[in-house]
Design a protein around this nucleic acid. Structure first.
Lengths: 231, 231
DNA sequence: TTATTTAATTGAGATATATCAATTATTTAA
DNA sequence: TTAAATAATTGATATATCTCAATTAAATAA
């Protein structure tokens, strides 16, 4: 962690969580005065599964992954976090422990806010609370969707879904330089890296994508969607 | 649906959602005056995936299952609901659509409360809002846990986990008459009914459980836990 | 009660996916 | 810039799980 390129104030932060729009100036100021910003290098751990969940976290810059360290050390990537996103471990409201590990995929700047202060704002500002409930709900819908994908889709469908998701939600482009290794792509889609390589090649041979090392280009998006939906 | 054996009032309801404890008498009264109670027979659908999510639902009596109707009509059971539980489709706060179907496993009595009223209470009562956030968080933790189980455990581990869960959380006994068919046990653990039968038999042969038609008895709980944890 | 439907069980064979081992690229560090 | 480490790729084989088809048991309706 180093302290360079810090944000001056929450007020003029372009990447603040949308929920902050519900806050009064005084409340924003409270957050601004109580936040701690830190910079992480790629690969560094930002939150560790099992550690105390005493902060809410906001990603100001960069990309991060959350993943559950599962059985026999096998990881399952839960989400890719982008600037503007709230990272609030569900354990915060339950057992005060992080349910997953979060680590930086690129250089990351993140703001930590003490959970007690965050919680107080939730209690005192109904719009803010409702925004948080919406955020939780959205994540729950995504989580249900992923449960179905992981359990019902075959490898092709899972990879297709992951690529579409990266294209639509993360990189917002049909061509992108992916920061995830084949191993990590496997941890997102529940397959071993060798299978990821094989499926990507299969799709390349079929003219659906191009995947030259880390640059992925979606050529036939309609076909990719079909593979994703059919499973 | 029929209207017999209805509850007189939320105040003296033994199976009310614990979140109601946060409400004032006036708020309880508001709910009581605006609730609609209905009785369902086993197999009947209580909420339908995709239909408008305009109510919060409370289970007053019986058991219900929530399940996602997935790819090619394949179901994934998300949860077993018991009396006292809140059934609030995560879509309520997002797209006003039910993310899953809920159907009765036994005779069920359920109370419907208009979501606008429920939402108003969340906005006006911070303790209630916080209780709801806790409820959502708890479900999120369970959901993460299940995602790992479904994707990383082998069939034996998934069945072991399901049996332990039914024993600990639903029936609260090591011997119970299960209301789920082998097919449904498969929809909980992501396997075909034939595999469920084979694994149950295997565990019976190993002296870990006894499973005579619908009566399941856990004989060696320690061993079952070990199978569940090892995966 | 008997007939009919539905659920549970069993076995044989097919398939998706993992594992293992070897090779080649690509990064990173010296 | 070269050496060392890490990541990607490929092929051969093993394994978990599903599919299909047949049979039996249990539940429901006539």
């Amino acid at each position: 962690m180093s302290g360079k390129n810090l944000i001056n104030s929450c007020e003029n932060c372009e990447n603040c969580w949308k929920g902050f729009k519900c806050l009064t100036n005084a409340e924003i100021e409270l957050i601004n005065e109580n936040r701690y910003e830190a910079a992480f290098k790629p690969g560094e751990i930002i939150l560790k599964q099992g550690a105390p969940a005493s902060n809410a976290l906001f990603l100001a810059k960069g990309l991060a992954k959350s993943y559950i360290e599962g059985i026999g050390g096998k990881n399952l990537i839960i989400a890719i976090f982008q600037p503007g996103m709230l990272i609030l471990s569900p354990g915060a409201y339950v057992n005060s422990r992080h349910a997953y590990t979060v680590s930086a995929l690129t250089p990351v700047n993140a703001c930590f806010i003490n959970f007690d202060i965050f919680r107080q704002l939730v209690r005192s500002n109904a719009d803010f609370a409702e925004f948080l409930l919406e955020d939780f709900s959205r994540k729950s819908l995504i989580s249900n969707q992923r449960m179905v994908s992981l359990s019902q889709k075959k490898m092709q469908g899972r990879i297709a879904e992951a690529l579409l998701n990266l294209s639509d939600e993360v990189y917002r482009s049909d061509e992108f330089e992916i920061v995830l290794s084949r191993q990590e792509l496997g941890e997102m889609t529940n397959m071993v890296k060798e299978s990821v390589v094989r499926i990507l090649k299969e799709m390349e041979d079929a003219g659906i994508i191009s995947a030259v090392s880390s640059v992925i280009k979606i050529i036939d998006k309609a076909k990719l969607k079909e593979i994703s939906e059919k499973g």
